[in-house]
Design a protein around this nucleic acid. Sequence first.
DNA 1: CCTACCGATCGGTAGG
DNA 2: CCTACCGATCGGTAGG
Lengths: 191, 191
Amino acid sequence: MKRLSKDDIIAGAGRRFATHGYHGTSMRDLGDDLGILGSSIYAHVGGKQELLVAVIEGGAEHFEASARAALDVEGASGQLRAFIKGHIDVILDHRAEARTYLSEVGFLDPDRRAIVAQRRDRYEMYLVEILDACVLEGVLRKDVDVRLASIYTLSILNLVDRWFSESGRVKRAELSEDVYRFVLRGLGGTP
Amino acid sequence: MKRLSKDDIIAGAGRRFATHGYHGTSMRDLGDDLGILGSSIYAHVGGKQELLVAVIEGGAEHFEASARAALDVEGASGQLRAFIKGHIDVILDHRAEARTYLSEVGFLDPDRRAIVAQRRDRYEMYLVEILDACVLEGVLRKDVDVRLASIYTLSILNLVDRWFSESGRVKRAELSEDVYRFVLRGLGGTP
DNA sequence: CCTACCGATCGGTAGG
DNA sequence: CCTACCGATCGGTAGG
């Protein structure tokens, strides 16, 4: 039973927020999970909202790192494939952070929420750019509505953790490939 | 300022739950929205959890009615199209109920949550059957993983209210058509 | 549907 | 990180 670090507290908060929601989590709940008192959490962080901010910004960084890596891949269709695989990997490797990032943004204080919204828009723009490049390279139909396509793709990706099980019939790598094929075909490409 | 009906209370609860979440909503908040005291709500309903149940079951019924109507359409691809259009219409015509149904199920008491989960599975099975029929009629590729396909489709549909605006660039009917084409092509069909 | 409340729990603090 | 609290708010009730 060694002392907890600030990161331990944030990780614990992420798990609770992901399963019970921000407003469904009390500082005492959180303390119970961590084996300390609720009031002891204030030795590490300023308050509950600060924990939400830390969890969500951690989630945002994972997604952004993944998108940057995807842009380094050669060829537009390879980038699309890497973007999809990267997003799924982030969601499944950081389920709690990712779920909180995706579901609890609305409970951020208005200022912080606006900043996170901007970061999400920027992330979506990465995908839009990749799809644009796919159209340009002739991988996708010229009449594709790239904005809608990016929303469809992110919708599929963002809900993956709600149903996917690592021990299920479909393996993670197969899922990434299948989503890639589905999106590519959906936009008029041939894998 | 006439007296409120039970349905008024449930509708108000739906709106609050959809925007602030179940745990982010107090009975006093709800009363404020309705112009009465929080404690006055207990004249109409047994408690907060009962309101959540009512909103969510109302949402479930809308989706199920839409699915049944889709199954009445002639031809598998027509059914798929009707299912998609119907789902989008339910979401946009009953935003608060639908959003609560989709996001707050986890806060239902365990027994009720299990029942709702069953209803959701049944709804998904409607789509699986339609997709199976599409494969059988040769509208879709024979090697399609219909389970995954239904999940992808519902993922796109379930997040529509998060970004769609009635006053936006894309109109509702266009969206339904575009999603239909995207899904059909994604599964190897040609619209 | 309001008045007047209840015990429980909330986020958070002072001091160690 | 605990002890010992604080005022505020929570879901809910009795009685009208």
